[in-house]
Amino acid sequence: MLAYILRRLVQAAAVMLAVALVSFMLFRFVGDPLVNMVGQETSLEDIAELRDRLGLNDPIFVQFADFVWRALQGDFGISYRLQLPVSELILSRLPATLELALISGALAFVFGVGFGVYTALNRRGWVSNTIMTVSLIGVSLPTFLIGVLLIWVFAVELQWLPSFGRGDVVDLGWWSTGLLSTSGRASLILPAITLGLYQMTLIMRLVRAQMLEVLRADFIKFAKARGLTNRAINFGHALKNTLVPVITITGLQLGSIIAFAIITETVFQWPGVGALFINSVQTVDVPVMAAYLVLIALVFVVINLIVDLLYYVVDPRLRVDRAAAAS
């Protein structure tokens, strides 16, 4: 087990190095950072001189090696745009993104599994049909449009919820949370729905399809023959057997929620790392972009590791196989 985790961690480091290298090679196609750093009066000599001092004239691999060397020492440089240390900037934005991602991920999982089981067990009812139809909207409308629609209905027309920002935030020193204030919780609702709707639909459809498959399996018939209650069959046996692919998907989707909260964060002016990244791309803020991409690679790697470990918990067969292989 420990050896397995260690092996995965070594792989993780390799993945992150590769991501950093690829992103470094892409940066020069994003544009020239100097355009956004100097006023229009600045002479071409001064621009060239600043570019030289920033090391932007060095070959890509030299810049990359320099980045990795300093990153290993915990130094991600200073933002070209906001002039603040990158690590501090990202750490200050991370709570907003994680809070949003976890809340919307949890909502998506709970409602996704719940609706999925319900629609699998009651295939013909009008409630199931309604849920299935509405969920189609979730997968077919782009996130951007859903966000704007929700803002229009709940912020502008009904004026129930705020249209942007994070509300009042309580600073706990190392973490800032919006969950402890009324305006913070109200601000979370619309972005969480926007971000989670697609994932919820995905999980729901997956659970429903798996559930229908499993309910036809022989062991369910035997369970019925044994006279087990419907409750024990549906939740103790059927649902448990659908969960392995669901956990994989949910885990990977959680990574996507964190990584691609960009659109939701932009629409709701949510002060997270996604909005920071988008603003950095627009101004070619290389230090922030590099640090962000490495961070996202880290998130994916960690989530994959956790998902792999969860398999052991859910599926006893894997434990047996591993144990047999190890001995």
Binding site: V148, I151, P162, S163, F164, V267, F268, Q269
Partner: peptide, 18 residues
């Protein structure tokens, strides 16, 4: 002072009185 980068959200915030 709050920056709101998305145009639709910026206008919505004005219309909703925020």
């Amino acid at each position: 002072y709050t920056p709101i980068s998305e145009a639709a959200t910026r206008i919505a915030a004005l219309l909703s009185g925020e």
